[in-house]
Simulated scan of single mutants.
Amino acid sequence: MASSRIQATVRQLSKTYKKKGRFELGIASELPAAYKKFWREWKVLKPAAVHFVPQEGKWKRDELTGETLPIQNIPIPLKHPAELHEGIWGGEAVIKGFQKREQHRRRVPHYWVPVLKRTVVKSEVLNTHLSVTVTDRTIRLINDHYGFDHYLLKTPACDLVSMLALKLKKQILTELMNGCPRYAHDPQRQKEVYEEYKTYLSSYTPEEIDWYGLSWYEALCKVAKQKEAANRPIPLKNVYRKNLVEKLKAAGIDGTKSSADEISTTTSWLSKMNPFGKKDEA
């Protein structure tokens, strides 16, 4: 009887006291909804399967035994090194596992690293060429999307992964939002590029574009700077000076002007107090 009461109390407490999430602690609670949307797209949304072939349906039948088994599409754990954010790997990453190299030897740890190559891609919206580190899958995806800009704009953040790709995507969206100013010298080409890519702007608001592509640390720093700018303290000397000027104006006194007699009187009085000053000769 007592154990059932304890279990009921534990269940009730577990429902009452929930663990606070990432966006509920400290200054992170002040992050706008625009960044939360990007974070869900980047970290929460399920990425496309790259290193395994997903099976459709819920059940499958074993060809040998005829047994019905559930289908489990469990993604392979991936390692994202720092070098990944310096290139565009197309969703690929480093796989850590074991490899049995000889039949009568135990398996050994092994890392499978994607083949990287340096290539040049062109961005029509930015009107520039970029030298980036890519994989064969990245080149294939760019060709499938008929251009580098289309690939970045159509691919969600969870599949782009790297900060370089996200920063470029944000820069392209900002350029489109401003009307492609890099083609200001050629109005006809500017109109053609804008008409081709303007459909991607319908998925984002200006605030979402402003917060897009920021890492967690960059977003927190941005919130801190905005908060500091909004609550910047005003020195008291500025407040007192402003109040004094207003009082002088209300009294009809101009504090910026002083008569020559007052200046000469003050100077003569100070000269008497200075022991190193020249004395008047009799």
Rank of each mutant, 00 (worst) to 15 (best):
L176N: 02
R11G: 10
P233G: 04
K272Q: 07
Y183F: 14
E124W: 01
R241Y: 14
P75F: 03
C158A: 00
A33K: 12
A82N: 03
D186H: 12
L201N: 08
E207T: 13
R189H: 14
R106D: 14
A48F: 00
V134H: 02
T9V: 13
L270K: 08
L160Q: 03
L31M: 11
S3C: 02
P70A: 04
K58H: 07
R40C: 14
Y200E: 01
F52E: 08
K278N: 10
R106S: 10
K225G: 15
K170S: 01
H85K: 12
G66K: 07
V161P: 01
I172S: 03
T135K: 00
E195T: 10
E228C: 11
K79Y: 11
W42P: 00
K257I: 06
R101E: 14
D261V: 09
V108W: 08
S215L: 12
R106I: 08
F52M: 13
L153C: 04
K257W: 02
E102T: 13
R182I: 09
Y146Q: 11
I142W: 01
P206M: 13
Y200A: 03
V245C: 10
K46G: 01
C158H: 04
G97Q: 06
D254V: 05
T138G: 01
P181K: 08
N127Q: 14
E124A: 03
H145S: 15
G26M: 04
N274R: 12
H145V: 07
P81R: 00
M163C: 10
L201I: 12
T135D: 05
Y17W: 15
R101T: 15
D210K: 13
K37F: 09
D254W: 08
T119A: 07
G277L: 06
T65K: 02
L270R: 05
A184I: 01
R61E: 09
H80M: 06
H150V: 10
A48P: 01
L78H: 01
G26T: 06
T9F: 10
A82W: 07
F98D: 14
E24L: 00
S271M: 15
V193Y: 02
L164F: 03
E196P: 10
T265Q: 15
R5H: 11
D210V: 09
W59I: 01
V115P: 02
A48Y: 06
P109S: 11
Q188R: 10
P47K: 01
V193T: 11
E195G: 04
P114A: 02
G179V: 11
P77L: 03
S203D: 12
Y183R: 06
E86H: 08
K18T: 05
Y146S: 09
C221W: 00
G90P: 00
E67G: 10
